[in-house]
Amino acid sequence: MSAAILIVAEHDGSTLAAGTAKCVACAATVAQAEITVVVCASEAAAVARQAADLQGVHRVLTVEHPIHAHPLAAAIAPQVAALAGPYTHVFGPSSTFGKDLMPRIAALLDTAQVSDIMAVEGPYRFRRPIYAGNAIVTVEVPEDMKVVGTVRTASFPAAGTGGTARIEKVGAPAEPPTHTRFISSSAAKSDRPDLQTAARVISGGRALGSAEAFQMLYRLADKLGAAVGASRAAVDAGYAPNELQVGQTGKIIAPELYVAIGISGAIQHLTGIKDARTIVAINKDPQAPIFEVADLGLVGDLFEIVPQIEKLL
């Protein structure tokens, strides 16, 4: 039996998000999968070419409508649901885009969703984290049901490029609703690496004490070519913007190097960094739970240590 998997592309209108390549990698672990990517956009050509370039993609469908200039779940869900008929699986990334969209698709298809797929054990059998990653459940979906799932992107490598999928225009199969309107976005343009895909991440917590002190981390990150992250406590306190939050309710990341500075390591934070290759912790409190998961721990005053590290690099 073969699987026909439809992946909903995440993009900003011009660039395909890295999470889509990870969904393709996840889908490719399903035996005999034929993978189709659907791009909903106001103008889909550029993003469709990037999707067609991914190894393992058989076909790219483009849905063009002015409302898709912004990623509104209420507008995209009916398009994907209208196209989903021939597919056995519909996947999207477990980014805020996919988390917002995929359950709406699942409900339109009258099916359950498997959230945060971290491993594929079979076409209808998946592993996913529950309780902030403190337990891992294997779930089975009945084979006569369509599988809607979000893919925990930190669990999969990105699919390579060099693919040659064909691109098909399918128009707009559904008439999108008018009850939801995009107003604005505060997305800050940064020259730093993206937190979700960076090889190195420097992350700060409550112990930084101020937004000014947090600047110290940006300097260190720039020296290392690293992205900057933050604990919930640091974001709540206003030291860092919300898009930097790492953890159960923020971003789940898997960098080569994660440096936690002044972060105590609540379980909700640790769940966001479990897949990091090497975790470094710098904290004044030798009992901080972050040291239980750190590969390298340094007990001391971050305000002395961080400038010293900066000088040594």
């Binding site: 805020t96 919300n242 898009e243």
Partner: peptide, 14 residues
């Protein structure tokens, strides 16, 4: 106002 991966996004809904 929604907390999304890129920052904050504002939607208007009926």
């Amino acid at each position: 106002t929604r907390e999304v991966d890129a920052g904050l996004e504002t939607l208007e809904v009926d």
